[in-house]
């Protein structure tokens, strides 16, 4: 319990450091959105060419409605939150070695798995907090526009979708930190993975349809906002997410137990 409290305190500053600017940007976007909210000319034009957007595989969301607009900018919710969780996961495990506090921590009468368990709990809780804070901010700031009945459902679906994406990166980040011999590298590798999958995700979107077989390696494509809007979760991807997360967590416990700590 002490370790949980200690970790909660140690990571609080960086949590706020992420939530506040991100929330501010999301709010600023909603102020700008004001300009074309409910602009019927754009909405009509879009409707007229809906078939074309469909043919091109682009998003058919109506960007003059809050839901449509949020789903277009939703990547900028998925991405930073995934980065946060990935960095948190790799950082929380490796920071004892980085800050040279490993010696202190592991001479305390606690088992290694208890330490990792406490860290895992904190990482999951904070991922949840940032998720609720950001999705909540978006939800509240767009309430002042005309929202449809499905708005709350859409946002809660998205919150879940984002959270599942976060879990994958959190798990991978923790696993990498406990497997790698050099604690310094874990952050870079997690980030490399994030950037690689993010860029792949954009590429898949750009050459629409032709690279769909790559989607399963790109967590950003697992729970696209269009699915969240329709209220469907791709069952296969949910399974992949849970399996990857589970393997990572089990792996973290396993490898950390035998880890040769850098002191």
């Amino acid at each position: 319990m002490n370790i949980i409290k200690r970790e909660l305190k140690a990571n609080l500053k960086s949590l706020l450091f992420w939530i506040i600017p991100l929330g501010a940007v999301m709010y600023a976007a909603s102020v700008e959105f004001n300009a074309f909210a409910g602009d019927s000319a754009i909405a009509d034009a879009m409707k007229q060419f809906e078939f074309m957007f469909k043919a091109l595989g682009s998003s058919v969301a109506d960007m003059t409605k809050p839901e449509g607009f949020i789903s277009i900018v939703s990547l900028y919710i998925y991405l930073p939150l995934a980065i946060y969780s990935g960095l948190l996961g790799s950082g929380i495990v490796s920071k004892e070695e980085k800050d040279k506090t490993a010696e202190y921590l592991f001479t305390l009468p606690v088992k290694r798995y208890e330490v990792i368990r406490a860290k895992l709990i904190v990482a999951v809780v904070y991922s949840m907090v940032i998720n609720l804070a950001i999705v909540g901010t978006v939800y509240l700031t767009y309430l002042r526009f005309e929202v449809s009945d499905g708005y709350f459902r859409f946002m809660s679906n998205m919150s879940l979708g984002v959270f599942l994406t976060q879990l994958i990166f959190l798990g991978i980040g923790m696993l990498i930190s406990s497997v790698l011999k050099q604690y310094k590298k874990s952050g870079s590798i997690t980030i490399g993975l994030l950037m690689g999958t993010f860029m792949l995700s954009i590429l898949i979107g750009m050459v629409d349809g032709k690279l769909d077989f790559l989607k399963f390696v790109v967590p950003f494509q697992y729970f696209p906002s269009a699915d969240m809007l329709a209220g469907t979760f791709n069952f296969g991807y949910v399974i992949i997410t849970l399996v990857v997360t589970l393997i990572s967590v089990v792996g973290t416990f396993y490898f950390y137990k035998n880890r040769d700590l850098h002191i």
Binding site: P21, A28, F33, L87, G91, G187, S188
Partner: peptide, 28 residues
């Protein structure tokens, strides 16, 4: 942690730029 800072700066400003082009907004 250098990475946390540089990721936040790099991706943060990228997100700002993307929102700026979606919204054609001057400030962003």
């Amino acid at each position: 942690s250098v990475l946390t800072f540089s990721m936040a700066l790099g991706f943060g400003l990228y997100i700002v730029a993307s929102l700026g082009s979606i919204l054609s907004s001057g400030i962003f």
